[in-house]
Design a protein around this nucleic acid. Structure first.
Length: 428
RNA sequence: GGAGAGGUGGCAGAGUGGUCGAAUGUACCUGACUCGAAAUCAGGCGAUAGGGUAACCUAUCCGUGGGUUCGAAUCCCACCCUCUCCGCCA
């Protein structure tokens, strides 16, 4: 959510900055609502003030034993107008609020301007794609060839877009998550956190999944009780930790790392990435979340992106860093870097992490604050990034470490987490 | 699932339908005392929104939402949450 004050004070500027995101603000409607709001609010408060002073006078008159009847009649007249006025104000503010909730974050200065993913800018490229002496297969062929990856079984148990792994492959999946958690907690200063995998609507609103993106979520009805949602990312429970809180300044910056499953309905992605485990309804992710004072958030994004990159470096996977352009930014983000890992099976770089600075956009709708140097509550800045998506990392390892005979080498960094295993041998 | 207790400022904790944004304590800030600190004393100290160049003024907020009333932290209704005990349970 943007700062309503900014909309009031400089609406044309806001509209101009949103054009780069391909968003057109209903400027005239906002201005009309805003001037009505102003007039109605002033009038309402004036009437409330009159009512209050009449009520006080009635109290005193009664205490003195005087006749309060005329005063009470006046109060009734005030209340009649007040009721109508207050209702108009409420409608007006609800309309404004609805518009406000639908407005995405403003891109930071320096974010490349562009309309789609085509216009994203490569910031750096790390590692050389390996030259294969044989035709590189994709992870589906490799995993099924090993007899350890079984999409058919997942379809039988649940349906499409789910995965089933067994044996060393399941272990490698677990090892990847352990490796990432250990790296971020012991070397990057994050606190490991375990959270609920179901969240309520208030939390989903806090991080911006609701009200606009309900169709992307899995809902869990509970009879008469409020519906819950399966988390689409650990960002939701972790960031909502500070919802409606005023954090003591000495606790900042807050840095959390959380391994969790993620559930996405992938509405609107029919036909995309239907093969393999690139786009699933359920996948594991190790998420990095930071809450920092505003002046630190830009540096924190660079740092957090580096933390995610470190995973790829240690696994010796070639990747590149993309700065998302204005048209490709997520709804809540002010700046985003995507990490794209090289997948020999697709001969393409594919997204494996997305690191964003949300500035105060999430914090404002969550009322997540800290006490600043003056002792006043001030909105935090929130950031998060995948460090990394576990399933996609497994895909990258399989494809980059495959061997001619169908076996897969285990990256050196991962071996301590796999009982010193150096290789998953081909099926016999 | 059954029974009971309770939700008030950063925390603890009073509160009679009107003078209650709310006693008191504590934390915090400022000042005095001190070489300095502690202790003590004095003063200050909620949030949000609106109006105003500003000093300042106004409104709203006592779990949430309704209701009664000229007026609600206080009365009524519904809901949510927390805690205690019992039952069940990995």
């Amino acid at each position: 959510m943007l700062d309503i004050q900014l909309l009031r004070s400089d609406l044309p500027l806001v509209a101009e900055r949103l054009v780069t995101r391909g968003v057109t603000l209903p400027v005239e409607r906002i201005q009309a609502l805003e001037s009505e709001r102003k007039a109605t609010q002033t009038r309402t408060q004036d009437l409330q003030s009159q009512r209050n002073s009449h009520s006080r006078a009635i109290g005193e008159a009664k205490k003195e034993g005087e006749n309060a009847q005329p005063l009470m009649e006046q109060a009734n007249a005030i209340n009649a107008e007040l009721e109508a006025c207050a209702a108009r104000l409420e409608r007006c503010q609800a309309d404004l609020n609805e518009i406000l909730l639908g407005i995405p974050n403003l891109p930071q200065a320096g974010v490349p301007v562009g309309g789609s993913a085509e216009d994203n800018v490569e910031v750096r490229r790390v590692g050389e794609p390996r030259a294969f002496s044989f035709k590189a297969r994709d992870h589906v062929d490799i995993g099924e060839g090993l007899g350890l990856l079984d999409f058919a079984a997942a379809v039988k148990i649940t349906g499409s877009r789910f995965t089933l792994m067994t044996g060393p492959l399941a272990r490698m999946h677990r090892a990847l998550a352990q490796f990432m958690l250990d790296l971020h907690t012991s070397e990057h200063g994050y606190t490991e956190i375990y959270v609920p995998y179901l969240a309520n609507a208030a939390s989903m609103r806090g991080t911006g999944q609701l009200p606009k993106f309900e169709e992307d979520l899995f809902g869990v009805p509970r009879g008469d009780e409020e519906k819950l949602y399966l988390i689409p990312t650990a960002e939701v429970p972790v960031t909502n930790l500070v919802r409606d809180e005023i954090v003591a300044p000495e606790r900042l910056p807050l840095r959390f790392v959380c391994h969790s499953p993620c559930f996405r309905s992938e509405a609107g992605s029919y036909g995309k990435d239907t093969r393999g485990m690139i786009r699933q309804h359920q996948f594991d992710k190790v998420e990095l979340v930071q809450m920092v004072p505003p002046e630190q958030s830009e540096a924190a994004l660079e740092q957090l992106t580096g933390h995610a990159e470190e995973v790829l470096k240690r696994l010796e996977l070639p990747y590149r860093v993309m700065a998302l352009c204005t048209g490709d930014l997520g709804f809540s983000a002010a700046r985003t870097y995507d990490l794209e890992v090289w997948l020999p099976g697709q001969e393409a770089y594919r997204e494996i992490s997305s690191c964003s600075n949300f500035e105060a956009f999430q914090a404002r709708r969550m009322q997540a604050r800290f006490r600043n140097a003056k002792g006043k509550p001030e909105l935090l800045h929130t950031l998060n990034g995948s460090g990394l998506a576990v399933g996609r990392t497994l895909v990258a390892v399989l494809e980059n470490y495959q061997e001619a005979d169908g076996g897969v080498r285990v990256p050196a960094a991962l071996q301590p987490f796999m009982g010193a295993m150096t290789r998953i041998p081909p099926a016999r």
